[in-house]
Amino acid sequence: MYKKKVCMVGEFSVGKTSLVQRYVHSIFSEKYLTTVGVKIDRKEVDVDGEKIQLLLWDIQGEDAFSSVPMSYVKGTSAIILVVDGTRGYTLDTAFEIKSHIDEAVGDKIPCIVLFNKYDLLHQWEITEEDIAAVKAGGVLTMCTSSKDGSGVEDAFESISRMMMGKNALAAA
């Protein structure tokens, strides 16, 4: 069975840990608990009959005082950039981190942008134009909600397919 490392990165409190918790353990908590360093979770997925084990590196969020150490993304097979739809600036942070990752490990690694907190759509600062601009850059985007689970399975399935060189699911 293939083992594939996937790094989840983004600003603090965008919902990286919640996405992993929803996807791996089917649970969600409203309470925000900051992540220090990295927590690694596993999940086995099936891509067109081929089993792969995802190693999900839930990496601490970037904040004003600390940036993501690039040693964490060494050897990764995919990057998931997580953006909080209710905080527009987290999109900029995601792409700042992405540019550091590109410098550290190259820009050929499969990448997906998740616009999270879709259940709070009425509070979103991220606009359709923002999402269109990301798509225009050739990056797959999906809208997710760890709270109600929407888009989460599809997002991880898509990144798994991309890592195996297959077409991702249709973008949300």
Partner: peptide, 26 residues
């Protein structure tokens, strides 16, 4: 799991702060 992709001798040393281990220890 924490060593996946990390054992390339040409890219040493590597420092990984605050990794949560299987026992839960940081």
């Amino acid at each position: 799991d924490f060593l996946t992709g990390m054992l390339n001798p040409t890219a040493m040393p590597v420092e990984l702060p605050f990794i949560e281990m299987p026992s839960g220890m940081s």
